[in-house]
């Protein structure tokens, strides 16, 4: 759902804004056709060549287009990291990278298709804005936000079948640096980024704990008041479908540690990070199965 919702919302945005341009890396069959049909002058298949796709996107952006590149997982990201760092981010080009298949969304297809290091790599690059929508409501908000945003961005989408977790898009408070509260609670707050939020919602219900729950659709550069709100809990549990090294949980630990080191907060909540324990899982498996193997669960926390 996040994928089709995002593309549909991008189509709507493209109807309003004549500068939106979509480039795919020969992927997106049965998803991108509506955009390509409606806006043939602003659609391009760059072929299976992600370095060049990113460079062409930068060239188009320089000429005034608001460019989105689209492909699966590691291909528009890790495959062309230097183009992202140097051509895109150093030049502050108005290009947004859209990758589907976050985490184990393409589970049975193997490690090549597991997108499990992208956050760590992209969040280390200056000027890059990272967004990982959790459900169709956030995906729509992400498309609208990124269509209006000028500069380098990354949208990390799951694939299909994600349930709606928010009730209304209005009043969501969807903006960089901000967490979205789904549930009040005491003592412990769970903060999840991306589609794995659905697992946290289901497990919290199952566990019957009175924990608070937040979604973090943007990763990094958190607003101070948002961090202070999280710092009021005794314990935080971060949850992400990504390696623990350098991922979303790391970004929270870093931000809290800096606040503590700078004397902004007197006590730091205990932070437990749930993520992939820095390993490859090379076996077959559905997304749910691989999440279990990787230990992505709040049960036992």
């Amino acid at each position: 759902m996040t994928r089709s919702t995002f593309i549909n919302s991008l189509c709507e945005a493209a109807a309003k804004h004549e500068d939106i341009f979509l480039i795919c890396g020969d992927l997106g069959y049965s998803v991108l056709e509506p955009f390509a049909r409606r806006f043939p002058d602003r659609f391009l298949n760059a072929g299976i060549a992600e370095q060049n796709m990113t460079q062409v996107a930068v060239g188009l952006a320089r000429e005034g287009y608001n460019v989105f590149t689209y492909s699966i997982g590691n291909f528009p990201t890790l495959r062309c990291m230097e183009q992202i760092r140097y051509d895109l981010c150093y030049h502050e080009a108005n290009v947004k990278i859209v990758a589907v298949g976050a985490g184990y969304a393409y589970g049975p297809q193997g490690v090549s298709h597991h997108t499990t290091e992208d956050v760590a790599m992209l969040r280390s690059i200056p000027n890059m804005l990272l967004c990982a929508p959790a459900d169709p409501i956030e995906a729509q908000a992400a498309a609208e936000f990124m269509a209006a945003f000028r500069g380098p961005g990354y949208v990390r989408l799951n694939k299909a079948g994600e349930p709606r977790l928010h009730s209304e898009a209005d009043g969501l408070g969807f903006r960089p640096g901000h967490f979205l509260k789904l549930k009040d609670g005491e003592g412990t707050a769970v903060v999840a980024s991306g589609a794995i939020l659905a697992l946290a919602v289901a497990e919290l219900e199952h566990l019957g704990k009175r924990w608070a729950l937040y979604s973090s659709p943007f990763i990094g550069n958190y607003a101070l008041q948002e961090l202070l709100a999280l710092a009021s809990y005794d314990e935080l549990i971060t949850l992400e479908e990504h390696q623990l090294n350098g991922g979303f949980g790391s970004s929270i630990v870093e931000a809290m540690s800096d606040l503590y080191a700078n004397g902004v907060i007197k006590n730091m909540p205990r932070i437990r990070r749930k993520g992939i324990p820095n390993c490859f899982i090379g076996t077959c498996g559905t997304q749910d199965y691989l999440r279990q193997v990787a230990g992505l669960s709040l049960i036992g926390s």
Binding site: Q55, R62, E63, D87
Partner: peptide
């Protein structure tokens, strides 16, 4: 870093 400018030039030419 080598091998970057031609692709960007392609984007500019395409525009």
């Amino acid at each position: 870093s080598l091998g970057h400018a031609l692709g960007v030039a392609c984007g500019s030419a395409l525009a």
